[in-house]
Design a binder for these strands. Structure first.
Lengths: 228, 228
DNA sequence: ATTGAGGTTTGATCGAAATCAAAACGCAGC
DNA sequence: GCTGCGTTTTGATTTCGATCAAACCTCAAT
C-alpha cells in the first residue's frame, strides 16, 4: 500500500540534503528540485514499479532498502542491485524515456523521496548544477554496476562475501565487528548467490577468522581476510 | 604503439557527428566539444589505459572494438564490456575523479576519438546541451551494465548467445543471416563465457535452427529461437 | 511458556560451465 | 597449392554453486 505525504518533513529533508545527489548543491538548486518531490512509504515486499512501466518517477532512498530485480521467462527472479539510504535509482528515465529496466521492491518498510522524471528533465536543462549532480549519481551507479559484473565473473562466492565484508571494515583496522544492514537473503541476492550459497560461504570464511552471530559479523584479522 | 593525429579528418568527423553522443547536438555544441578531441589509433592488443590510472581522457570509438576487462589477484582476466563504433566509454571520469575502473584494450586495429576529461568537465557546466548528451550516454551505459548483470544471473550460456543473436535480427524477420562483427573469443568474453563454452552454446542452438559458418550466423526461424 | 512463521543452516544431489588437452579448421604469406 | 600460426571445436574431467529437502533457530504474537 502506497502512502504519499506531499510535503517533506524536517528529518526527511535533512537526509535528502546530505545524500550524494544533493550534497554540495547550493540552497537554490536544492529548493528547485524539492518542489518536485513527494515522500512515499512502502511496506516490506511492496512493488515500487515494474519492469516495462513507463518511467514517470525516479527515487532517492530515505530509509530502508530497495531490491532491484529482473525475471526470466519462467518467472525466476535475479537481483541486480540493492539501494540503501542516500542512493538514487531509476534516474536513467530522465534521459532515456524507454521503460524501467527492472522491478523495484521494498525489501522492508521504507521511505523514498519520489521525483517526477519529466519535471527534473526540464530542470536539468536550466541548471548546470542540477545536471552535474545527476551526472555524478549516474557515474556512480555505472561504476557500481560494472564492478558488479567484474565481481560476478572474477570471484567465487566466498571471495565475493569477503569483499563485501571488507568494504564495511575501516581501511586500517586490525580487527572489526559490524552488523549487516539487511537480511542475509537480500545480501545473497545482491551478491548473485542463493541463500544456501551465502551461508556456506560464511562458514568457509571461518578459517579466515570470520565469525557470524545472527546479523553481527566479527573479523579477527582484517588483513588475513584480505589475503583470502 | 599510440599514434595521435591532432586534427579530425572528414570521415572521422562524420562518424563522430552521427554517434549517439553527438546525434541531435547543435552545430555549436559539437564544435565546442571537438576543440578538445584528438584521434588515437591502436594496434590489436594495445592497451588504451590501465585500471587505476588517473582518468585524463575518455573516448568514443570511431572504428573497431575495445575490450574492457578487469583482473583478479591471480591475474585472470574477465571482460566486463565491449565498445564498438559510436560507443563512448570511461566517461565516468568526468564526474568522478577516481581512477579508471577497468583496463581498456584494442581488440583489433582501432581508431578512437579522445577527449580531455578536464576540459569537457568545464564544458558541461557551461552548456546544458553538452551536459544532456553526456547524461544520455551515461544512462545508456548504465542500462547496458545492469542488463548484463541480469543476463549473467538469469540465463544459461545458450540463452545468452540466443539473446545476442536476436539483437542482431530485424525485429519482424522470419529468417535472418548476419556476420559477427568481431572474433568469437571476444564475443565469449562479452557474454562472460570461456571460448569453449561459446562454441558449445552455438552447437546446442543448432536444434533451434541456428547454423554457423565461420563468422556468419544463419537463423532459419527467428521466432523459434525466441522461444528457445 | 507455547505456537507458528520466516529466515537460515546443513545435507545430498545435480547440472552448467571452467579447465585441461588435443584435434581440426581457416587463412595469410609464400 | 602448400605451410604454419592463431583460432575454434571437440572430448574428458573437475569444480562450483543451484536445487531440493529437511532440520533448526529466532522472534513476535498469543
Amino acid at each position: 500500500m502506497v502512502n504519499k505525504i506531499l510535503k517533506l518533513n524536517g528529518r526527511d529533508r535533512d537526509i535528502l540534503a546530505t545524500s550524494p545527489l544533493f550534497k554540495g548543491m547550493s540552497q537554490q538548486g536544492f529548493s528547485k528540485v524539492i518542489e518536485h518531490v513527494a515522500v512515499s512509504s512502502f511496506e516490506a515486499k511492496d512493488l515500487i514499479f515494474r519492469e516495462g512501466d513507463s518511467p514517470e518517477y525516479f527515487y532517492t532512498v530515505l530509509t530502508g532498502f530497495v531490491r532491484a530485480y529482473r525475471l526470466n521467462r519462467e518467472g525466476r527472479e535475479a537481483d541486480i542491485a540493492v539501494y540503501g539510504p542516500g542512493d538514487t535509482f531509476a534516474e536513467t528515465g530522465i534521459f532515456n524515456s524507454d521503460a524501467y529496466g527492472f522491478n523495484a521492491q521494498a525489501a522492508e518498510g521504507i521511505t523514498l523521496a519520489r521525483f517526477e522524471t519529466e519535471s527534473v528533465r526540464k530542470l536539468v536543462t536550466e541548471s548546470p548544477e542540477i545536471a552535474f549532480a545527476l551526472m555524478t549519481t549516474l557515474s556512480c551507479n555505472l561504476k557500481n554496476a560494472l564492478e558488479c559484473v567484474a565481481d560476478d565473473r572474477l570471484h567465487t562466492a566466498p571471495q565475493r562475501v569477503a569483499n563485501f565484508i571488507l568494504k564495511h571494515c575501516p581501511e586500517s583496522a586490525q580487527s572489526a565487528r559490524f552488523r549487516l544492514p539487511f537480511q542475509k537473503s537480500l545480501l545473497a541476492g545482491k551478491l548473485g548467490l542463493a541463500p544456501e550459497a551465502l551461508s556456506r560461504a560464511f562458514s568457509s570464511l571461518k578459517s579466515a577468522g570470520v565469525s557470524v552471530h545472527g546479523r553481527v559479523i566479527e573479523i579477527n584479522d582484517v588483513s588475513a581476510l584480505r589475503r583470502f
